[in-house]
Computed example of a mutant assay.
Amino acid sequence: GIFGEAQLSALLEQVFTVDQYQAQVVTRRGGKNPVDFAIKLPGRSDSGDPLWLPIDAKFPSDDYERLLDAQQRADVLGAEAAGKALEGRIRLEAKSIAEKYIEPPYTTDFAILFLPTEGLYAEVLRRPGLMEVLQRDYRITLAGPTTLLAMLNSLQMGFRTLALEKRSSEVWQVLGAVKTEFGKFGDVLAKVKSQTESVLNTLSSAEQRSRVMGKALRNVEALTELDSARLIPPDRDMDER
């Protein structure tokens, strides 16, 4: 059991960040039995708690070693008996996992039974119909090291895709807000342009009038500064400035 948990922990560490899974989680409401590990899925239950995918490691080493020993001795009857015992043990473990750790909507409607060696996993797969029975009767999926790693990588890819979709949605919202504000900014620029053009037209008109007045006064003799000061007193404020 300790060996299986260590193997499972190492695989999870390869794929997930520490906040994407948790060890020793009680996944059933009011339960007292913690599963070895549970993955936090993006969806949440109605209560707001994480949706867990339970994974429990099992290593029936005694039954497996008896099977290997009988096979090495070419003991057909012994191998058959050990194989049936191993199959029975796997069924019991699957039933226990289903009863202790599966409880939708707080968990997924299935759990994973992890077998920590490829040899053990291959031996269990050889039992006719065992995989189908575990999935149908107990909602348990078997996984060896390689199979579990593939499952975990698939889950992680799904998490990343979901995160990208959420970020994409946020980006479109920001662009929509920018588009709205840019439209308002365009209206302000149009008003400023209109007002500026009006000022420029007024200045141009004043400049034209100034030229006309200059032409009309061209033949008028200018007064001396003293005579001009008597007719038009100077502005003291302007002089001070």
Rank of each mutant, 00 (worst) to 15 (best):
L11I: 01
I2G: 05
P60T: 06
I102S: 07
K32R: 11
Q24L: 02
S47K: 13
G83F: 01
G30K: 11
E118P: 01
G158C: 06
S47G: 10
L68A: 08
R91V: 15
E207Q: 06
F182M: 11
L152G: 00
A216N: 00
R44M: 13
R89N: 11
T107G: 12
T147P: 00
G30I: 08
V188R: 13
A143G: 07
P34T: 04
K179N: 13
L41F: 12
E197V: 11
M157W: 07
R218S: 09
D69S: 15
A229P: 01
D49R: 14
L41M: 15
A111L: 06
L200H: 08
Y138E: 14
L162C: 05
G4H: 00
G88H: 07
E65M: 08
K215Y: 03
G183S: 12
I112Y: 05
L86K: 08
D19Q: 10
Y21D: 02
R139M: 11
E5R: 03
T146G: 09
L51H: 06
E181D: 15
K179C: 06
Q7S: 05
A79L: 05
A206H: 07
D62S: 12
L86F: 08
W52C: 05
T108A: 11
L125G: 12
L164H: 11
I112P: 01
R126D: 15
L68Q: 15
G83Y: 00
R160G: 04
K100M: 07
L155I: 15
L231I: 13
R73T: 09
G1V: 04
A150L: 12
D46W: 08
M238I: 13
I97L: 09
M151H: 13
G4Q: 01
L77P: 01
F159L: 13
P105W: 06
K32S: 12
D63R: 14
L226G: 00
D237K: 13
R211V: 03
V25K: 00
D239T: 05
A79S: 14
P233Y: 04
L115N: 04
D137R: 15
E170K: 13
R126F: 11
D19F: 04
G183D: 13
L8W: 00
L11G: 00
T147S: 08
